[in-house]
Design a protein around this nucleic acid. Sequence first.
DNA 1: CTTACCACTGTGGTCTAACCACACTGTAAT
DNA 2: ATTACAGTGTGGTTAGACCACAGTGGTAAG
Lengths: 232, 232
Amino acid sequence: MRTHELVLQWIEKQLSDGDLALGGRLPGERAMAEQLKVSRTSVREAVRILEAMGVVRAGVGSGKDAGTVVIAEPGSALGSTLRLHVATRHLPVADIVETRVLLESWAAQRAHVGVPELEEAAELLDQMDTAPDIDTFLALDARFHVALAQAAGNAVVSAMMASLRGAIENYAGELTGNLPDWNATSARLRAEHRAILTAVNNHDGGKAAELVAAHIQGFYTEAGVGANPSPK
Amino acid sequence: MRTHELVLQWIEKQLSDGDLALGGRLPGERAMAEQLKVSRTSVREAVRILEAMGVVRAGVGSGKDAGTVVIAEPGSALGSTLRLHVATRHLPVADIVETRVLLESWAAQRAHVGVPELEEAAELLDQMDTAPDIDTFLALDARFHVALAQAAGNAVVSAMMASLRGAIENYAGELTGNLPDWNATSARLRAEHRAILTAVNNHDGGKAAELVAAHIQGFYTEAGVGANPSPK
DNA sequence: CTTACCACTGTGGTCTAACCACACTGTAAT
DNA sequence: ATTACAGTGTGGTTAGACCACAGTGGTAAG
């Protein structure tokens, strides 16, 4: 077993034993190296991996942002991993989109009416009506979809859904510029969003799921992803 | 931007530009360091991350297993990430199981009849009938479920499904020892497997999906996961 | 000529020791 | 009381060395 894997194992044990919890701080790299009888290099390799997994965040200096602290951001980590695999041509963009439709449809169907996430989603829709540019609109759109997925109460589905979107963010971002009429597209998307949210709040999960599926598939089809999955 | 991220960016560009493909070799660590004007340490940190993502595999010595080569194993990489997040208590085991049911049901419903994966699945079932011990049985079981998921033809769903199973492998493995009557459970699981495969081959996707959902949920319920998601 | 041995080479794996930038903390000078 | 600044501990980066490993190829023994 390689040395950095030993460090990883030790840290994972700290986590599963509860000795290290969310928000907790790892010992300093030098201290950990001495304690585990390994070099700081190996400790750092392990920390890098945990950082890439979204389990930990490293900060220099001193104070609240300093040190290596335990976080929980599986979404961005999974997204980076998927993006790299898309780059190797092993994961087709079409499969990403299809999976996203699957997860978000499920989430829309099972969304719990009345949870705070749905209120946040409604506010986001209002903000999208007055978004000054495309980038702002897309950022709000992302948060809306995440909020909707979170309303189903399954952290794994939420994380995966967010990672799928993140993995192909570049593609979607580039292709929006090629749309014939952004204003028309924007208006349609906003209307679809409201219809989805209404269906959810009316406890019509089936309809909400159908609308979400059509919404996502429609956007990517119009943007050309799936039909033309050629890389940049 | 940190130095190792620069290296990551460079490698990702090589991948998306097609200059580096699956099975290809990265330059040696020393060569890359010199080329990018960074230290070998930073190159190694980047390689570690890619390795954790299942994008490359590093091997010492010389010959075919040596050097850092591009692979495509998102399943095990995502599985490790999820396992760590389960350890931080951020991802409940119940959510993992629920997501696995969702993905595998979908895959069973959309499985393409006649693909090689289904033939492999059938062979695996025969081997499971004569499995000498529980570990062998579970290994074959894992391969059966993966083969079934692959029959749907969506690489993302296959990878995620495999990773979900891998993330909670330890839990399932420990709990099988606590089952009241393994022989009875094994017989039931094998019968359910054959029923699922039959439904798929009969083009009855709906029934296959139902059977898969009941199969997975039943196993974890019997093993106590979900009802008692306490860590080891 | 065949065979066995062994130095050579290039790979990743590990370690040490040093220096840097950073951000806060305490103290001393004003 | 305010300001300035040295001190301290954090992660970030680098250079250089040595190790184990696995093929390669030359060389000596048979």
